[in-house]
Design a protein around this nucleic acid. Structure first.
Lengths: 200, 200
DNA sequence: TTACTTTTTCTAACAGTGTTAGCAAAGATA
DNA sequence: TATCTTTGCTAACACTGTTAGAAAAAGTAA
């Protein structure tokens, strides 16, 4: 009897309808504005049916996160396949990753939980400039003492900040304790590379 | 007349009481669990008095963010002052930044809006391992072809991922458009340094 | 077709959230 | 003492995630 199959298919359709509605709302108003009730309105069903397919709101976000990584993966595969040497592959992947993030800002924000205290107001924080100047000072000195005095200190400042932030935020996210020593090594690796990169 | 002074002082006390209560709640239950009503309960005042000192909840978070950067700045100043050469200063600052993040996780999360879809469940995403393997492949090849075949590919993978993520998330946060070219240059700078770092 | 069972779907509620209008009480001024 | 200003509160509005329990629909068996 095909009834069970049809029911299964309908359940699947409902599930994807929920996810599509959720995604539509996310790219429309940002993932912070996503609500179960809005999803219910879009799919034209009552609220509790959503809970028949997802345990809670977080499970929906998690599924979108999964989709995001899936899409990113496929972009990376494409980047790899179109390049020959490992150098080119790495470069292509870096660009693909970068492009993915900015062409799919909503995805990236869901994937990494970005986008709170409100991105727009971060610029209001005056302490950020103090922070920048603080790091800038020794970087400038190092550049002056190095072999390439034309190096842009702001560029290096950005590299410094981004690297540290990325390392930390990825480490904070994954509770995997066994990786802590690994990350400390990455930190050391980065510092050494950063300094020698300025000098030479 | 000292009445105006006293009133001003009392207003200030109320303000700091709100911020202290908010902070206490943040380190207790995480910044996502922070609510105006809980703050009101802690300071033993009704809810609307909070709105006499802060426009909205976000303003409170923003102030905590500001405090976070202030504290980070003072840590960096300390790190700088205790080191002599720019190399040592940069290294000390990197470690200070790192330490600050992990000794003040709550601060760091508020500062960078981290900690959504729930950090704990990120590990459930199977696509992450696919992603890792994808990047790992060319990195391994590059290491094998380089002068230092003992280099840990996982370490390099982590560097790669962290750097990209840091660069992107900082760029996504600050809407400052004029910096986009700068960041593209940082990206190039990073890729070049990353590859040459593996080779040599 | 009818009676029964299972599945699906909904209404309504609970407990919580940010935010604000409007009133009451307290404090300051004359 | 009377007036004005500041301060603080109650109560509400419009949301949020989540769930219990009733109603409706769909499937099954006689």
């Amino acid at each position: 009897m095909g009834i069970a199959e049809r029911k299964k298919r309908q359940r699947e359709e409902m599930r994807t309808a929920i996810l599509e509605a959720a995604w539509q709302l996310v790219i429309q108003d940002g993932w912070q504005a996503l609500s179960i009730r809005k999803i219910a309105e879009v799919i034209e069903y009552s609220v509790p049916v959503i809970y028949d397919h997802f345990a809670n709101k977080e499970a929906i976000l998690l599924e979108l996160t999964r989709q995001g990584f899936q899409k990113l993966n496929s972009e990376l595969v494409k980047a790899i396949s179109q390049s020959a040497s490992p150098e080119q592959q790495i470069e292509a992947m870096a660009y693909a990753y970068w492009r993915f993030a900015f062409e799919n800002t909503a995805y990236y924000q869901v994937m990494y939980g970005l986008g709170i205290p409100s991105c727009e107001t971060v610029n209001q924080i005056s302490e950020l400039s103090t922070f920048s100047e603080l790091v800038l000072q020794p970087v400038k000195q190092l550049i002056a003492a190095g072999k390439n005095p034309a190096t842009d200190p702001f560029l290096k400042l950005h590299t410094f900040w981004s690297m540290l932030h990325g390392l930390i935020s990825i480490n904070i996210m994954s509770v995997n304790e066994s990786k802590e020593e690994l990350n400390l090594m990455v930190l050391k690796d980065f510092i050494a590379g950063f300094i020698s990169g300025i000098k030479s």
